[in-house]
Amino acid sequence: MFSVPHMVGSDLVERLSAASRQAPPDYLAAARLTLQSLLRRPDCLAGVELARRSGGYARTLLFGDDQLSLWAMVWDVGARTPIHDHHCSCCFGVLAGALTEIEFKPIDDTTAMATAQAVRGAGHIACMLPTGPNLHQIVNDQAREAISLHIYGYDHTLRPNSVHREYRLAAH
């Protein structure tokens, strides 16, 4: 197990780890509650050295065990993920700033078309199971840095990330 020392809310994350062995709906409910509690604590990352990448996004592992991983992601202005889906459960909450989430519908195994777009401000939480298709892209198209927290249902020591497949945008 990996855990950032002295992270505010680490007790919540350890309880979530135990809940991760429950049925998927119960686990997702526990993940949502964990994110709600962490997002209500603006100091939850106080003392944590967060990775940053100019023009992109960077991830910092806050907690990980054989069932789940919790990451802080710092989004520079202009940062964007590829269009992707997940091989595991995915819950994210916006801690600071705002991010645009674009949802997609797959056309085939490599191509997708946009179906919806919304700005997700501080406090927003979304949770999904890998029952798919759950294709999306996260973009920081705002004028300042954003920070989000992500809970994924995978062992961070076995896989480099939660992405199952990346897609390209279909031509119009």
Rank of each mutant, 00 (worst) to 15 (best):
I138F: 10
V163Y: 02
G55R: 10
R168A: 07
D109Y: 08
S148D: 03
E101D: 13
T81A: 03
D11V: 08
E14I: 10
C127Q: 07
H136F: 06
P5I: 03
S162C: 11
H87D: 12
A98T: 09
V94P: 04
V119D: 14
Y152Q: 12
I102M: 06
V74Y: 10
L35T: 03
S54Y: 13
L149S: 04
D76T: 05
G93S: 06
G64V: 05
T157A: 13
C127T: 15
C44M: 06
E166I: 13
I83Q: 01
D85Q: 05
Q137I: 05
T100K: 12
R15A: 07
G56S: 14
V139A: 10
T157H: 15
L169G: 01
V139H: 13
V48D: 00
L28V: 00
V8D: 10
H87Q: 14
T60E: 08
A98G: 04
L158M: 07
A171M: 10
F104K: 07
C90D: 11
E145P: 05
V77A: 02
Q142H: 10
V4P: 01
S162R: 02
F2S: 04
D155F: 04
F63Y: 15
A19S: 15
A146C: 06
V74G: 06
P106A: 09
R15K: 10
G55S: 09
A98D: 07
I151R: 06
G93L: 02
L39F: 04
H136W: 08
M128N: 09
A96S: 13
A58Q: 03
L62C: 00
L35E: 01
F2K: 10
Q117R: 14
T100Y: 07
S10K: 11
L35D: 01
A31G: 11
T100W: 07
I107L: 13
Y152V: 09
R52G: 00
Y57N: 10
F63T: 02
Q22S: 12
W75F: 13
T81P: 04
D66T: 11
F2G: 01
F104W: 05
A18R: 15
A114V: 07
S20V: 06
T100I: 06
L158Y: 07
C127L: 13
C127F: 07
A23L: 14
L39R: 11
R32S: 15
T100C: 13
P5G: 02
G97T: 13
P130I: 03
E14K: 15
A58E: 04
A126S: 11
Y57V: 08
G55Q: 05
S10I: 12
G153M: 13
G56K: 15
V94N: 05
